[in-house]
Design a protein around this nucleic acid. Structure first.
Length: 671
RNA sequence: GCACCCGUAGCUCAGCUGGAUAGAGUAUCUGACUUCGAAUCAGAGGGUCACAAGUUCGAAUCUUGUCGGGUGUACCA
């Protein structure tokens, strides 16, 4: 809608007037939403600032109210503006022409369809998220990562960006080695045995990643007493990295099966990927070697010949001053010649930004329902056809929890040091705080909590300890609860419809629960709160949209279609009377709130904060519920008022639906 | 030690680049289904915005300090 543009136009008017009348250049003109509709639709507390600046430049003392009067006249020239009031010590409160606004909004899209997201030549950005190690099932912490990443993707697309979604597969890390050791040493299984087990699990309706979850925890436990087993880890890790041997083959099977499970889990939450880049290819296709050469050529790393880092290649840093215990420099190549994770990450980041000069080979990994494809990298050229163009991104957003902000800083600064022409702005760490368990939630999961842990306000989840809420378990519980509610309300629906509805509600509940917290808030997981369908929840927002839709279903049954109403919304004078009536402000405030979606999405994109959109969606749903209770639409007798109410309800439900979809939440038919 | 994050109602959290009377949800209490759907709505109580100083027309928001909590600071990933 045109709320955003109107606000920008008014801002420009303020800027121009300040220049012409007072010879003052205003860089950014702040605006705010007045606390009450009665105080206007947008306010500029700019006169105070102008008074100060005039005094600074000319020494002349001017009354803010007089300054505001001059701006008021200029703002009132805009025909979308009904009037401007100067309030308090110098607030400029702008009131829009309500009837005109409604007429224009009735036919506008809540989020304008932007062509550039489909334009193949416009610059592309990359969002990398999920990054669950492929050795176990995903837990709720991983889901926070994926939901944040996925929602940010939807926000970027809504503002017209082309986006590439990657899930990095760390298939040569120690976690994978640990599970491999579990299979080969604790369970004495061969690859064939594992395949048999996999089939058996599938037949029993158990999943491979859940099995690995338990096995990984067992290995962790065994390490505590079995030094010999722990020593085996380095050996297995080396074999996996090297490739082309039975251990690597076994590891590859385990990894691929886990990735399949995790991709399927995420699909349940509406999360899909474009590409799964694997660490093994970064090694085998010599990405690191190329990056290393580039760093040497540009002289941004040095070989230490003495001191405690002797024999290592390091990247010098002044990130933090460093002291006796901790070095300021970051080791990229160990003294034994192997590359650290951060080193590999720099090479990967270079590739993502199109700076490496090398590329992967690709193979189709999976085709989603509806035909969308997800690709995986390979080390050999498999002559795949119709491979999309990956990499070469303008900007890269890495969704990684805040505990990794130091290595992320190294990657960002590292790449920027190697390629000053690209700069630091191209690498964005989309950082967020972890999901932890309250001691009581951990006990509820059946874990024995130490006295020390009981004292803590929260307990970190740990794959190694098998401590965590598994994503599939949680969504299963949510679906079961939702199904009970749907059955109680809509017994007449078919089983499929009930299940589909329960699924949509469950996803809405979980996604909203994870998105309503701002990124740097630690979520202390609480079952009661996460499982709730009441209050500030996704379900609340969905319910609001469902009720709105049911009004239009009823209207449609009576043969009244929305398009007819739009045509009848034309008589500005009569519409104005409705808005000027006692309950006019209430109707108007829902309309203006519904018109702020585009602005909110753009704010969420700028601030990289999906919670802004989640909060807005809830506010809008709440405003609609109030409107719904106070105004009977179908029964409304005054025809003009009825048209206005229908138009406002329609604009609101479309905005609400768009907002929810941008959060990855669907609106069911009935619930 | 150093770096980053956090401290707002009993609890869980919002509060945008400083702006009008600090807001939600939840919990507690009270009311509303013969109505376009009660997974809803209305009302009540509940605050020294950790503490102190500073910046200014104006501070929960910015600066500094103090206290309390978290995370990181690996030749782990």
């Amino acid at each position: 809608m045109k709320f955003l543009q109107l606000q920008e136009t008014l801002r420009e008017t303020v800027r121009v007037t300040a220049r012409n009348e007072f010879d003052i250049e205003l860089e950014n003109v702040g605006s705010e939403i007045p606390p009450k509709t009665e105080l206007g639709d947008v306010a500029f507390p700019i006169a105070f600032e102008l008074a100060k600046k005039i005094k600074q430049t000319t020494g002349e003392k001017q009354n803010p109210r007089e300054i505001a009067e001059k701006l008021k006249a200029a703002l009132e020239e805009n025909e979308a503006v009904e009037r401007v009031e100067v309030a308090g010590a110098g607030y400029l409160n702008v009131f829009f022409n309500r009837a005109k606004f409604l007429i224009e909004s009735a036919n506008a899209e809540p989020l304008p369809k932007l062509k550039s997201s489909e334009n193949k030549t416009s610059p592309k950005v990359c969002v990398e998220h999920t990054s669950v190690n492929p050795n176990k099932a995903a837990h709720i912490g991983h889901v926070r990562n994926a939901v944040l990443g996925d929602t940010f993707v939807r926000i970027l697309r809504a503002i017209g960006k082309r986006v590439e979604i990657q899930y990095y597969i760390d298939n040569t890390g120690v976690q994978v080695a640990d599970v491999v050791i579990g299979f080969t040493n604790l369970e004495n299984m061969s690859l064939a045995d594992i395949k048999n087990l996999d089939e058996k699990l599938a037949a029993e309706n158990n999943s491979f990643d859940f099995y690995c979850w338990d096995l990984y925890a067992k290995v962790g436990l065994a390490y505590q007493t079995d030094e010999e087993l722990k020593a085996k880890r380095a050996e297995v890790l080396h074999l996996i990295e090297e490739g082309n041997n039975p251990t690597a083959e076994l590891a590859d099977y385990v990894v691929t099966r886990n990735v399949q499970c995790i991709v399927a889990t995420m699909e349940r939450f509406g999360i899909r990927y474009d590409l799964l880049p694997r660490e093994s290819e970064i090694l085998h296709l010599h990405f690191w070697k190329k990056a290393f050469e580039e760093m040497q050529k540009r002289e941004v790393i040095k070989f230490e010949t003495e001191g405690k880092n002797a024999g290592c290649w390091v990247m010098p840093f002044e990130l933090h001053s460093g002291n006796d215990e901790h070095d300021a420099d970051k080791i990229l190549v160990r003294s034994n010649g192997t590359v650290t994770y951060t080193g590999k990450d720099i090479a990967y980041q270079m590739w993502k930004l199109g700076l490496l000069g090398l590329d992967f080979y690709y193979n189709l990994f999976h085709t989603y329902a509806g035909g969308k494809q997800v690709w995986i990298t390979t080390a050999e050229d498999l002559q795949s056809e119709n491979v999309p163009e990956f990499g070469k991104n303008e900007t890269v957003y890495n969704v990684i929890d805040s505990r990794q902000s130091y290595p992320q800083e190294v990657v960002k600064k590292g790449v920027a040091t190697i390629f000053p022409e690209k700069g630091e702005a191209a690498s964005v760490h989309l950082s967020y705080e972890m999901v932890a368990l309250s001691p009581s939630a951990a006990e509820e999961l059946g874990f024995v909590i130490s006295d020390e842990d009981k004292q803590k306000s929260f307990i970190e989840m740990s794959g190694r300890r098998g401590l965590g809420v598994k994503a599939d378990d949680l969504i299963n519980r949510l679906e079961a609860n939702a199904l009970k509610e749907v059955e109680a309300r809509h017994a007449d629906l078919s089983v499929e419809e009930k299940q589909k509805t329960a699924h949509i509600i469950a996803v809405g509940a979980l996604r909203y629960f994870l998105l309503k917290f701002t990124r740097n808030t630690v979520i202390i997981f609480d079952f009661k709160e996460a499982l709730s369908f009441e209050g500030e929840t996704g379900c609340f927002c969905q319910y609001s949209a469902v009720r709105a839709n049911s009004i239009f279903r009823k209207l449609s049954e009576k043969g009244e279609e929305v398009s007819n109403f739009k045509e009848q919304i034309s008589d500005a004078k009569k519409i104005a009377e409705i808005f000027n009536a006692v309950d006019g402000n209430e109707i108007w405030s829902v309309l203006t709130l519904a018109s702020r979606l585009e602005e909110t999405v753009s704010q969420a994109a700028m601030a990289i904060e999906p919670a802004l959109l989640a909060k807005y969606t809830f506010q809008l749903a709440k405003a609609f519920n109030l409107f719904y209770h106070n105004h009977k639409i179908i029964a409304q007798e005054n025809p003009i008022k009825r048209h206005v109410l229908v138009a406002v309800a329609d604009i609101t439900r479309r905005s609400l639906t768009s907002a929810l979809n941008t959060l990855g939440i669907e609106v069911p038919e009935r619930m």
